[in-house]
Design a protein around this nucleic acid. Structure first.
Lengths: 382, 382
DNA sequence: TTGTACGCGTTATCAT
DNA sequence: ATGATAACGCGTACAA
């Protein structure tokens, strides 16, 4: 077969420029121009080409275009361990879409109410990542760029795979990230969410944890006069660590002694929080305030305290961090430090879109640090 | 330059198999095998290749791979008029990510509280599409496939563009959809959400509107004895029309007379609902119940009634449809008919993943019809 | 086990 | 304005 000629059975394949060109009686260049360079072609042939394309159901292959001009036009958002902090979707019965129900005999599919409640629980959605993702998608929509969402637990492979599909990539934080981060190719612009500044070539979008935490502590100590304030949450990841550090620093500025041992609380899995708080409770050693590393920790603490019969905020006050929606639905409503999550997602998209065309070693590395804001609700005693 | 040889300045470009092959001292086939066919290569050379790839920051180009083997591995989700029913993100001040703030002198970015509230309003997020999208993304995650999110108002171009990027495509309903639908290439498996059955080659995922509506009317008339029930919402799109039709049919089965003129209510833009309800109110002609085409309509109706000083549900009862989260946050809480949105999104993904490899004219066309469920809350008088 | 050569579908560069 | 042709980077028969 001669190079560049259309294959014989045009019917069974996805149509290509060759098929359209033949159908319209023009060359493949004219087909391409009809779609991408309307000004370089006569209106008459353009119409002929478009009609032929429509007749054949032709859709240009993004893969070929991407190969030809070296860019995909897509921006990516990657999560290493997507949903690890949520209900595992594998626990939920998959809908029976594999049951063969032809169109003319559609059977009505029932669903498990409990499964639906698991998925629709505001404590599981929308979370921090969902709001950031929404901001990212909104901005990409405005920029006219498709968004590629990807995830994977094997850090290297999955991120490299995604990197090969997009012109720019934003990455959610993860415990496994730092190592993978260093190996990350600097070949496309990359934004890291909530990662400490460093020497690597990647951009940053993060929040001023210290400012938010110190404002929160100032409120708790200054306004409420609380003097026994504990921290809940393991120190893993940049955000949690920075929040813990500033929790200690702020208390010490007020002349108070922080509890050195933060109360551990894993957000997912069999959690030890009830256990730990229960132990403190029987010893009568519960702190007056639980400052939690995130809203998810705080909501778990509310559950645990309710289970122990401890009244919030009268006996123990609780605060969160992030400002997710579920904090507005809890009982009592949750005092928190809100991050502008949508704005952060949008910022990441703009950074990528702006630097996607630039040189790989573009010396302008962004570090967008957003100011969080204390949101006072009931759980702190307000 | 000879065909197939690496270019001279390997440093300034994204590295390719040629660069890696040269670096590792092997052929490009070995590089490819090292990544895709580990069993067909010796462990030693594989290690050499992977090390070289890491050194160079090599990420395989998805475009080239997609072109070579004819599939992208990605599933797509397309919305024609994404966010048309939400706050226009262009109204929101973009975050100042374009301000050059080098990493070593990060300035803290303030943000507008009102903008953040607009974006974080539960009435704007998560909506129906967001929950479906989440289900779609969850299922794709389980299937190990990336997701491509796209949107565009120009129906033909944008959907064709997306179709060229994915192995299968799910499409949200839209007023402009029917026309574009017919022109859609059947070249890749396609799922249409909430579209009436038809002769086209596309799959369907939808909800049993009639069953849901009749159950709702049965509750309102049978349990609450309401006899003056009006419908709110324009009859556009498959879901709204079917709901209106069944609203009429159900009432007539109960021997009641439906109001023929549904109260118009556009979800976005300067809405006429307050105006219309106000006119009915001054005439003392408000219906006893407002059955709304969607939760978004119902929430607007609640606002309008509150503005008129009409008590819900004592004077006028209100019901919605869909079961979005915002209905749990309204005052009073909203009685609705919930769709299993996540399950629908997951079903779409499974259908696409299952048929992506099949023949284009695969005769198994799915029509997954999910059973909705009445959710009783306060706004109906319960 | 490893290397060579070609095709995938598009865009861009040149001629005409 | 239109046509011919060479990249683009990867997968993979096929040859060695």
């Amino acid at each position: 077969m001669t190079k560049g000629q259309p294959m014989s059975d045009a019917a069974s394949r996805r149509p290509t420029v060759y098929d359209v060109a033949q159908e319209a009686g023009v060359s493949i260049a004219s087909v391409s121009f009809a779609f991408r360079r309307p000004e370089r072609i006569s209106e008459a042939t353009r119409e002929r080409v478009l009609a032929a394309a429509r007749r054949l159901g032709y859709a240009p292959s993004a893969a070929a275009r991407g190969l030809a001009n070296g860019r995909t036009g897509t921006l990516g958002l990657h999560a290493f361990d997507l949903m690890l902090e949520r209900a595992d979707p594998r626990d939920v019965t998959p809908p029976r879409s594999d049951a063969r129900s032809p169109l003319d005999a559609a059977s009505i599919i029932p669903w498990s109410q409990s499964d639906d409640e698991t998925l629709a629980d505001p404590r599981a959605f929308p979370l921090y990542v969902d709001e950031v993702q929404r901001g990212f998608a909104l901005e990409c929509w405005m920029l006219g760029r498709p968004v590629m969402l990807s995830s994977g637990s094997d850090s290297d492979v999955s991120v490299a795979d995604t990197a090969g599909r997009v012109d720019g990539l934003a990455i959610f934080p993860s415990p496994v990230l730092p190592a993978a981060l260093l190996r990350m190719p600097a070949t496309i612009p990359t934004v890291l969410f909530s990662v400490a500044p460093g020497d690597d070539p990647h951009h940053r979008v993060r929040v001023d944890n210290a400012g938010g935490m110190s404002a929160l502590i100032d409120h708790l100590v200054g306004d409420h006069q609380y003097d026994d304030v504990a921290f809940v949450g393991r120190q893993e990841g940049f955000d949690n660590s920075e929040r813990f550090r500033e929790y200690r620093a702020s208390l010490m500025r007020w002349g108070l002694r922080p509890r050195d041992e933060p109360i551990d609380g894993t957000v997912r899995g069999p959690h030890r929080m009830l256990e730990q708080l229960g132990a403190l409770h029987v010893r009568g050693a519960l702190p007056r305030v639980l400052v939690c590393a995130s809203d998810q920790h705080a909501l778990m603490a509310l559950d645990a305290l309710a289970g122990l019969g401890v009244r919030v905020p009268d006996e123990v006050a609780v605060t969160g961090f992030d400002g997710i929606l579920a904090g507005r639905l809890s009982t009592p409503t949750l005092t928190s430090v809100r991050q502008p999550m949508e704005a952060m997602g949008r910022a990441a998209a703009r950074i990528l879109a702006g630097t996607a065309g630039a040189l790989p070693d573009g010396h302008a590395r962004f570090d967008a640090v957003f100011a969080p804001r204390v949101v006072l609700r009931r759980s702190c005693g307000c």
